[in-house]
Nucleic acid binder design. Structure first.
Lengths: 364, 364
DNA sequence: CTGTTAGCGCGTTCAC
DNA sequence: GTGAACGCGCTAACAG
């Protein structure tokens, strides 16, 4: 109970509470003192749980607002042994893809009253693990990791921590806890099958270095499922960063053009594909007459290109929303599916029409 | 002190501690019990403060690691009345700009041991204020807001909260606490002056709706400082989102072309400028022969465009780093400058050479 | 419906 | 150099 002095004004006893010091935020006790009730009643009123008369609740809330009372989440979390912080780990903000997934999740969590603690790993598993350790100290309500490729210790650490974990963007049948994503190998297969049906026979893949991005490798595997090992070629380029997605596609394409006969190039993403188109043009080639180009993701960028890019649309924001909802259910004790696969959509653009070959034959 | 049983094995008394329950993470007491010392010594050892012999410290740290001990940040923060969480509020992840500023800050904070709680406001001041309220409940070490245009209550709330505040991206002489940014009006003036020197006389500005983005308005004001009110024209378009930056530039440009005589168009950013180039081309116009195009930011995108975009380079990542360092100093009690202005750089590209007029005259 | 008691895990303070 | 009390602000469990 707060200390107060009693002062006589006229014939009334008036309780005088000390002004809250500006250095320290008010606490629940201050509200209780003014409302002349116990801190438990205030606590219940503020949390909106049962056990307070409507009249008192309204009054307490009014006082709390007037006092600009802000509950102390640290104290609350300590008492209940969990918080409403949710940790989200992404490789990078580059390329819009992760930003959109993140946006979908954040919006959903935000509405549910959760705050997001965010990390970017730069595709480094040690960085991710170190961040998880730090995050765990906050007793987070849940944790989200991008992809399924983690430090070996990450899995055991999280499994023993008992908090809900969501792995997003990749697909796996053996997630740490729950997963939502697309099947990247299947997506690669889809792209390749369309290309093959159109008569293409000598594909290349402009991406990041092998082993650097498990999803890139999965898509390449999908392409090879269709075209076979000998013909599916990859090009190792610099790692993508916030600054060089376009350049990477540009340079990687020049590299391809100087090295082998190719009639179609698949790219890790649309940005790189755009760089690739520019590279072809800089060499005097015309797309799609001289080269087929296939992107990935179906970003907005593709809508205003001189030609419509052939690409694979991925449901990024939706994936974030679905993942977040699943996780919220999981947090509330509802059982959810181990893994959820989101559909991708092949988008036939204008960068993949072959002049000669199967397709041309059917026309001429 | 932890409870343990003493068991006799051979002739030795062996202390047997209960296995930690998997549902609850170990605490400092567990470590102390195994190390056979007090929790205070463990606390000191882990925090790396004075008052523990080197021998004991090493031993304690080893045990803590073996036990996979994770400190409880909630308890710590409750005890010391502050946390190592830093709140960062952005309008959106769209457009790479904020993502890069964020990246610069995050990297710096991360190294210093701080975690980032992130919010996107979608340019809504109420959303921002609501988030600040929630964040404050965590007793954050500092808080970062994008821009200087906030809900009136935000200013008083933060000022009374006593925690360091950084406003980033815009420039102001009267920040809530500290600010780091560029002078957008000056940047607008710089662009316009270059254009005027090249002989342009009928500018337009493709941006977001007036009053929606204070920075857009500031740049427009800068343009008008040079060209005057009558000639500086603006076009109101849809608000930018993660999906339509290019489209916005494309559509806004078509709008301009249908409405007035213009010889140069300034854009809110490079993405929109790129959309603008495409729009001009779709109308059979050639850039820069028929129209001057000026972007903003100097993104990587511009490096692989068919033509080099004339633009203004902004030091985004660097701004994030500088801001973060300033804030860290501020957190540690060092006085820092009220406001810091970062330089911008006008980049003369190939989208602003006039055929006739002043510039043409000097050639022909 | 309301209030009291007893922690949550850690750090500060002050003894030893 | 080390340790025992106490308190940080809040809530679960219980008593009235």
């Amino acid at each position: 109970m707060l200390v107060y002095r009693t002062v006589k004004i006229e014939e009334f006893d008036v309780k005088v509470f000390p002004m809250p010091r500006s250095t320290k935020p008010g606490k629940i006790e201050d509200v209780a003192a003014v409302a002349e009730t116990s801190i438990m009643t205030v606590s219940r009123a503020i949390r909106g749980v049962e056990g307070v008369s409507e009249k008192k609740r309204v009054e307490i809330l009014k006082i709390a607002r007037k006092l600009n009372y802000v509950p102390n989440s640290n104290a609350r979390s300590l008492a209940v042994a969990n918080s409403n912080l949710i940790g989200i780990s992404l490789p990078t903000f580059a390329g819009e893809v992760f930003a959109e997934i993140l946006d979908g999740m954040r919006g959903t969590f935000d509405q549910a009253g959760y705050s997001s603690v965010i990390d970017t790993t730069q595709y480094n598993k040690d960085t991710e693990l170190a961040w998880i350790r730090r995050l765990l100290s906050w007793q987070p309500a849940a944790i989200i990791l991008t992809g399924i490729d983690h430090h070996p210790e990450t899995r055991t650490l999280l499994a023993s921590s008992r908090i809900p974990v969501l792995e997003i963007w990749d697909h796996t049948n053996t997630p740490i806890d729950t997963s939502v994503g697309i099947d990247h190998r299947m997506a690669g297969r889809v792209m390749a099958e369309h290309a093959k049906a159109q008569g293409y026979g000598a594909p290349a893949f402009v991406s990041t270095p092998r082993g650097y991005d498990i999803r890139a490798d999965a898509r390449l595997a999908g392409i090879r499922d269709v075209f076979g090992d000998q013909e599916g070629s990859e090009v190792l380029t610099a790692r993508p960063s916030l600054e060089n997605a376009f350049s990477t596609g540009f340079d990687g394409t020049l590299d391809i053009l100087s090295r082998r006969d190719t009639d179609i190039i698949f790219y890790l993403n649309d940005n790189m594909a755009f760089g690739g188109i520019m590279a072809c043009q800089s060499k005097g080639m015309t797309v799609p007459r001289d080269m087929g180009i296939v992107g990935f993701n179906g970003l907005d960028l593709t809508r205003v290109l001189p030609v419509q890019l052939t690409t694979v649309k991925t449901p990024r924001r939706q994936m974030g929303v679905v993942g977040a909802r699943l996780l919220l259910a999981r947090i509330n004790g509802v059982k959810v599916a181990k893994s959820t696969v989101m559909p991708v959509q092949f988008v036939e653009g204008e960068t993949t029409v072959l002049q000669s070959g199967a397709q041309g034959g059917s026309i001429g």
